[in-house]
Simulated scan of single mutants.
Amino acid sequence: MKAGWQIKPLGELCDVIGGGTPPKDRPDYYGGDIPWATVRDMRADIITSTEHSITSEAVKASATNIIPAGNVVIATRVGLGKVCLLAQDTAVNQDLRGIVPKSNKEIDIAFLFAWFKSISEQIIAEGTGATVQGVKLPFIKGLSVPVPTMEEQRRIVTLLDEAFADIATAKANAEKNLQNARDFFYGQLQAIFESGSNSWSSSTLGQTYDVRDGTHDSPKYQAEGYPLITSKNLKREGLSFDDVKLTVMNPERRPE
């Protein structure tokens, strides 16, 4: 922490706004013109659209609240640790919280968003619950936020944007180079088999190899036995034994 930076609880800097779900037995509450976000909509840094929408009557009749565009939304129950920005005014369900600064002169939203992303693992670690992990409102409001000057906050955001842009470019170049290498390899491989050689002979696959089908019965998994290979184990780069299960072959049902 740099000298001169203040530390303040999130609840002092921002309003933490909860949400809710309109009654599902009221179909007239759904399909309106107000986006209604759940964790399922938190697929990217910015929520630009939602799977569901609701009416203004639904907002009045439920615990949901509309979070103004441009603000941060975090998941505090399902999808714990996720954080997004809103592209438009959006209502939220009970698993999300809107984080709205009380003053735009004290905390920059882009800085706040980056800070939340940096502490996602901390939030996940604090989750409690037997089936669904979540954090309570007092915990969120009590989070200690570093507060440099607004000028410093914006400088940090600019540096992060530049760094992430460089990372994205490097990743894209690496993926392109890998794809080019794969294309070259498979092109060369195909050329070898197509050109062949005068000394090569040809035959059908069945004439050369013993082609067998797998069992069509539901497998009985064992602690020891043979790896059971399915289509999910066939990768472009080869056979993967990740998460493979073991079974014992029944000699009476040996495939032909």
Rank of each mutant, 00 (worst) to 15 (best):
A191P: 11
K220G: 07
Q190V: 08
V157I: 05
A163V: 12
G142V: 02
R212K: 12
D166L: 15
T90A: 05
Q133S: 10
R97K: 15
I119T: 07
C84W: 01
G214D: 00
V211E: 02
E121I: 04
T204R: 08
R154S: 01
A172D: 08
Y221R: 01
H216P: 00
N93V: 08
P146T: 06
P219C: 05
I99W: 08
V132C: 05
T204E: 04
F184H: 11
F193Q: 01
R212N: 06
F193P: 00
N198V: 09
W200D: 13
F184A: 12
L86I: 01
E194A: 12
I192S: 11
K171D: 15
N173M: 15
S118W: 02
I109M: 11
Y186T: 13
S203P: 00
N177R: 14
I99R: 09
A170N: 13
A191C: 12
K171A: 13
I107N: 07
N104E: 13
G187K: 08
K102A: 08
M150A: 08
T204Y: 06
I167M: 13
S218A: 12
I192R: 14
Q179I: 12
A181C: 15
T215G: 09
I192A: 14
Q190H: 07
G142W: 03
Q94V: 11
I124H: 01
K102F: 09
L86K: 01
S218Q: 12
I192Q: 11
I140M: 09
E121M: 07
E106G: 04
T204V: 05
T90S: 04
V145C: 07
G129W: 02
P148F: 05
S118A: 08
G214Q: 02
E152G: 00
R182I: 12
G187P: 05
A125D: 09
A163N: 11
W115H: 07
T131G: 03
T215P: 00
T204L: 09
Y221A: 04
K220N: 10
G134M: 06
N173V: 14
V135C: 03
S103W: 04
Q222K: 13
D95S: 13
R154W: 00
S197T: 09
S203R: 12
T169Y: 14
D210Y: 03
I124D: 02
G214L: 01
N104A: 13
A174G: 10
T131K: 03
I123Q: 03
Q207W: 06
L85H: 04
L86M: 00
R182E: 11
F139K: 09
Q190K: 11
S218M: 10
A130D: 08
D108P: 07
A223I: 01
L96E: 03
N173R: 15
I119F: 02
V92D: 09
K136Y: 04
D210S: 11
K117T: 08
F185V: 10
E224M: 06
F116T: 04
D108W: 04
N177I: 10
S203M: 10
D213W: 00
K117V: 05
E194L: 13
T169H: 14
T149P: 03
S120T: 09
F185D: 02
P148E: 02
T215Y: 01
I167F: 15
F184K: 10
I140C: 09
L159F: 05
R154A: 00
V92L: 14
F193D: 00
F164T: 15
A174W: 08
S201E: 11
A87R: 10
A165T: 10
A223M: 03
